[in-house]
Structure formats: C-alpha cells, structure tokens
Design a protein around this nucleic acid. Structure first.
Lengths: 410, 410
DNA sequence: AAAGCATTTGTGATAATTCACAAACGTTTT
DNA sequence: AAAACGTTTGTGAATTATCACAAATGCTTT
C-alpha cells in the first residue's frame, strides 16, 4: 500500500487565491473556496473548462440560491457539516452542477467554509481525497488568520426554510430564534404548499405568486423558496373558516390566476397537513410531496385532490405497501393476470383496472377502453376464470383496487 | 413515615412449611411456595377460605398447566423473573385465580422459586410488600440449604411453547437447544394454529385433536397447548403442495371432524403466516389471533378466512388505524351520519354499511335491512345529501368501507 | 391449407337498476 | 288541530346490466 504523502499544503500561502491554485495544481482540477454562507472566497485559475454552477458562483461571488437549495435537499450540506471527510456529489443537471467533491473547512465542530473540487477531466482517487482533507486543514488556518471565520453565520430566509423542510433543524426554540432574527412572526398553525409549474420558477414568477398570496388574504406566507419548477411556501391560514379550507381556497385562486398564463394540466398544487410546531414542517412538506406524487402517477380524479387530508385511501397506500414489502406479499391474482396478458397478448390487467376505476360501470369502462360492451363482459368473465377473483366480494375488490394503485405508485 | 420493621424472617425455620406458616401469620393471608418449575414446595395451613387455583395446586402438588399458561400469557411470570419486587395479579376468573401477590425467590439473577400470597380477606399494604421481599430472601437461604435450588430447571413442552408464543425466548439457538432436550425435531417452516371451541378444551379433546392432526397427515405438530377454549398448535406443513394450502386443508378437516360434535358456528380456526425461524412464532401467533379477532368482530364472509394471508385488506386495517390515530384522523362523513341518526332516529349509518358490504346490491341490501327497495334508494340519496359522499367514486367508497370496518374492529 | 382456439363484435331477450311521482305514515312544530 | 317535515311504500317507465347465441376475426397449431 502507498505511504501517505507529505503534506503539500504546509506553510502559509499569503492569500487564499494562492492556496486555491495550489490545491488545483496538486489535484489537477478547478477549485473554489467558499465561506459558511456559500460566498466565494477564492477560486483557482485553472485553465480547464468548468460548469455553469461554477461560472455563476464566480460571477455572482456567491453560490446561486438554487444550487444551495438543491444541495440541502439532497442532504449534501448536512453531511459536509457533520464530518470533515470529503463528500462526492454526482452531477445535478437541473442546477448546472457537474460531478464534484467537497470538504468542509472546520474549527472543531464549527464550519468555517467549504472547498469544492470539480471533477471535469479526472476523478479524484482515495489519495486525492486524503490530500483534500489536508488542504481543508490548511485552509482553516488561513481563514482563522484572515479572521474570516470569526464572522457570525448569517442565515438567510431561504437557507432557514430549507433546513426546516429537510428536517435539519430539529429544535423548536432555535427555529423560533432564527425566525425572530429574520423578523418573521412565528404564526401557527401553518401548512407547507407546493405549487408546481411546468417551467422554471423565475424571480418574476415568484414575486407574482407571493403577490397573489398577499392579495388573496387566505394565507399569510412566512417563508418561501423556488425549487426549479416548484414554488414552496410555508404559510399560515388566516380567517374564521377551517384552516385547511382556507388552504384549499388559496390553491384554487392560484389555479384561476395561473390559468391565464398556462394550461391547467400543466400546473399542479398540493399542501400537507396543518402543523402546530415548526419542527413538523418537514412532515408537512413530505405530505405535500406525496400528494403531488399521487397526482402525477395516478392522474384522473386525483388531480383535484390538493390537500393531504383529502387523499383518503391514497394516504395509506405507502403504509400498506411497506407492510406488504416486509411480509413479502404478492398479489397472486394480479400476477397471474399479467402473466396471461404476456402469453396471450391481451389486456386483461388494464381492463380490470379500468373497470374498477370506472366504478364498475360497463358503459363508461367500455367507452374508455374503446371496446364493445360485450367484449368487456367477455373479458371480465375470463378474468374471473383465470384469477378466481370474485367480483361480488367488496373485500376482494378493494384489495385488488389498492394493489393496482400501489403498482402504479411504487 | 413508618420506620422499617425488623426482619421477622431472620434465622432458620427447620422446614419450608414452617416458613410458609410464618409468612402467613405475618401477612394474615394463605401462602404457597413453589420451585422454579411451579411444583409445590410448601403451603401455609391458614384456616381461611382459598381459591380453586390454590386447591388444585395443593392437590396436584403442582400449579395447574392452564394457570401457568395464563400467567405467561399475561406477562406475570416474565415480570417476576426480571425483578425481585412483588407483583400483584388481579383475579383471573377463567382459571380460578383470585387476587394475589407473588414474589420470586432468587439467587442473583437465577430464579429458585416463587412465593404466592392470596389476598382473600385483606389487601397487602406497601409495608406488607416489603415484608414479602424479606420473606423471599429467607426462602432463598432455605432453598439453597435444602439444595432444592440447585436442581436444574426442567422445562416442559408447554412452558417452552408459551415462552415462544409470548416472545420470551428471543434467541434461536436457545430454542433449538430446548427443542433438542425435549426430543422435538425442529422442522421448519412452521405455522401457529388457533383452534377455538365454545367450551373448555379438555385433555380428552386435546388428545382427540392431536390424533386428528396425526391421521390427517397434512401437518406435523411440534408443540401444542390448551388455553381455556382454544387449542394452540405449532406445526409444520408436510407435503408437495403449498405449505399454506396444507394448513388450510388441515383446518378444513378439523372443521368437518368437529361438526359431528358441535355446530359449525361455534367453532373457529385460524393460522398465522409461515415462519422460517422459531423466534417468529410469536408473530405467527399474533397473526392467527388477529384473524380470529376479524372473524369475531366482522363475521359474515370473514368466517371463511382462516389464514392470515387470506385476510386481504383486513390485514392492513390495524396498520391503517394506527396511522389514523397518529394523525388524529376522523372520518367526517361517518361522523355526520351518526350525528344525523342520533338526531332523527334513523339508521343511515347502518344502511350505508350494509349497502357497501352487500356489494352495493339494492336487492340484497334491502332484503337484509328488511326495507323496501325504494326506501333504500331514498336513504342513499339522503346520505349523499348529508355527507356529500360520492357513491360513484371508488376511491371514496373504499375509504368509507374501510372506516366502517375499522370502527367495528377497534 | 385446414382446424382449433381465444377473442371481438353484433343481435335480441331478459333481468336489474334507477328515476319520477304520488300517496301514506309518523313526528315535530306552529 | 293543522301544517310542515322527513320518511316509507307503491306504481310505472326509462335506463342499464346481464345473458345466450351467432358470426366474424386473428392467431397458433397441425
């Protein structure tokens, strides 16, 4: 096994720029150094090509908001903050991020900043990773000397929101403190909304949606963030009506407003359950996400279900699925149908799903399937023979219906 | 506060009988002392009335099997074994057990026996409890002197089975050892069966059922136990067919056999899922129990569901219920129906449940409900108005159906 | 190419359901 | 007591679902 190299980053470099260049030389990759607020401190003058995220960072002297959000969402930042080991980040096309490796610069448990290494022309080896760790130590002394690290962490609204959304702020008091610092009134109960367009949420659109929420008067927005084509809101319903009814009417006004610009099918909206403490924001966000997942995977009538509480049985599909997985359950009937379909090039599986989804209405189902009613009748008889499903048993039908939907969702 | 009394059980008593009498004197209650295998060692000659369990214990020189089983099932024995504090056991009518307090006699972590105090005419006070603890210490020296405590614990089949059923033997190797000691071949996979009669399972019936299982050849019984009106089996299906199919045919043969003696509705049977290790026996037992619970609470078509794997959607009702509880979910529609019924003395709730259970068949439902078909039609229209349930939406119907069943089960 | 099979479509008869409407009944309200 | 209301039952017609059967199609097997 190779011996550890001597530390090439020993001694002082005069400036962080020099250190960045040195790291870049040693690793043969472009390097950027940021402070704990993701503001650019230094970057290497590596001649190689780079990626859009790095360009935007250098131009704006700060890592773009959407890149930071994306890194929070994927749990990269928490991982960096927890350990002084380098973390590899696979490219995230949506935010223009190429493959790269990052390491935190830390003094004990306090994070002073980050070093990012772009893997444009080579992948870092295990040895490189070790070198990068040494570089972080060197950067630490540099930062401390320059007294950059002593600057208090300035958290902005977006970052706070993402921490709440991803569950990286599990202490209610600390959240309340930070909300206070940011001059946000901690109004509860609150709900997390996801408003999803087909295109990128531009700052203009963002402003527009917030304006809409303000004039709508149904909800009071505490925090907001744009996440590619989604706009996320943490808001508190205000008024005499049921809080969740207020949430629904806000969503509806959002729909009518957006209809003028986009076709209806392109925009979607969802919200989670009402939370009574800010530590539950992650839960509400996850619930809103699962509403969107149901809408996208199941379509149809589910498109009108925007609140998690409206999901009905769809709320429990994941729970049921998990239990099925644990028990190694398989729906034999549906499997035999699929097997039959494969062998005979028929569509019994789809036929049965449509029939059940169409409330067992022969007319509607045959219409949707573009087949003669007698064909449907014949197929149903056939399905009964093949699977011995008893279509007169609600108990059996329900299990099959749910398994159809579970198969779509997972 | 009262000072601690001096220890009245200091010194030797010559025999355990003397100690039992002394304890009985001090506490003014009948006392029995058992070894770790629940064999009678001594009992007080207290003149007071006693209970059937104690009489049977004294007559048989051992605590009756069913009493021991019941104590295992309620977790009393494990609690006694884990701590040297006295445990109070409320009366268990089924096995003739009156209120009593027990304490384990132990040498370090090893249990040598138990002292039982019947609370026939007085309840033990906190001071009495403390005295009982001192008595256990005295009993310990007595037992060790008599070298009774050094006898190796002889576990019998029943006790082993109950430990497995209650999850008090979480180590596979130890179970295998014990099975070996008892000359039982550890055949896997296995299933837990519960066969339930309306009357007590007598030794004669027990023998009869085991004989039936033997001649039936579908399953190989490893362990069995009678528990009031239930007979529990741990058995391994043998044959070329699917193991669970074999389980079902055994149950069917059990039914046909028992029909000769009892009416069909009086006997029930259920079995859990196939386990591949003996540590999962508890799970299979719980599953079989939940099948029985479904049969008893829901009746109807569920009576023909004997295997846990056949439960279909009923398998998930507890999971769904738990999640609902966590979220504070309430089915508003059903609640408003019940409210309406209460105010107007109608039966819309029951009407809807019957209609859905009868597969939305107007004829059958109106017949079962003893009402005119148009009345049913009218009620359904009314239900739609009151609850805005859309009976054309499978999604809504399913949620409501499940909530009906959940309301019955929990 | 012919036969066999599963599937689809069409026709017509029959059964079940839904709907509209009216009358009767029982409670509660005025 | 009359009126109002919700409920039940009855009648008949319109709609829808189900069944039996025949014919046609397409595919595989022989």
């Amino acid at each position: 096994m190779k011996e550890y190299q001597t530390d090439p980053f020993k001694g002082t470099f005069g400036s962080l720029e020099n250190l960045a260049d040195k790291i870049s030389d040693v690793l043969s990759c472009p390097v950027t150094i940021e402070d704990q607020n993701h503001r650019l401190l230094a970057y290497s003058t590596h001649e190689d090509s780079t990626d859009p995220a790095r360009v935007a960072t250098i131009i704006g002297r700060r890592v773009p908001e959407k890149v930071v959000n994306s890194l929070w969402k994927d749990g990269v930042i928490p991982r960096l903050q927890e350990s002084d080991d380098p973390v590899r980040v696979s490219s995230i096309q949506k935010v223009g991020l190429g493959d790269r490796v990052a390491v935190s610069i830390r003094k004990n448990s306090e994070v002073l900043g980050y070093i990012w290494v772009l893997e444009v022309e080579k992948k870092l080896t295990a040895d490189d990773m070790h070198l990068l760790k040494l570089a972080a130590v060197s950067a630490k002394s540099q930062l401390l000397q320059m007294q950059i690290g002593t600057k208090k962490k300035e958290e902005n609204r977006q970052e706070l929101f993402w921490k709440m959304l991803t569950g990286n702020l599990p202490h209610e008091e600390r959240i309340l403190e930070k909300l206070h610092e940011l001059n946000i009134l901690p109004v509860l109960p609150a709900v997390v909304f996801i408003l999803q367009l087909q295109e990128e949420v531009t700052p203009a659109l963002e402003k527009d949606i917030l304006y809409l929420a303000a004039v709508n008067q149904k909800i009071n927005v505490l925090l907001s963030a744009a996440d590619s084509n989604q706009m996320l809101l943490l808001a508190s319903p205000v008024g005499k009506e049921q809080p969740l009814d207020l949430a629904k009417s806000f969503v509806e006004s959002f729909f009518t407003h957006m209809k003028e610009r986009f076709s209806v099918s392109e925009i979607k909206a969802a919200y989670g359950s009402l939370v009574t403490s800010f530590t539950q924001v992650e839960k509400s966000y996850k619930e809103a996400s699962s509403v969107l997942a149901v809408q996208e995977k199941l379509g149809g009538e589910t498109l009108s279900l925007t609140g998690y509480h409206e999901l009905g049985i769809y709320q429990f599909l994941d729970t049921i699925y998990e239990k099925q997985q644990r028990q190694g359950y398989q729906n034999e009937m549906l499997k035999s149908l699929q097997e039959y379909d494969r062998l005979h090039k028929t569509e019994l599986y789809h036929t049965l799903e449509t029939y059940l989804t169409m409330d067992e209405n022969l007319n509607k189902s045959s219409e949707v399937l573009h087949i003669h009613m007698n064909t449907l009748l014949y197929r149903l008889k056939r399905i009964g023979e093949i699977t011995n499903i008893d279509l007169k048993s609600p108990h059996q039908k329900i299990m099959i219906y749910l398994d159809f939907k579970i198969n779509r969702l997972f």
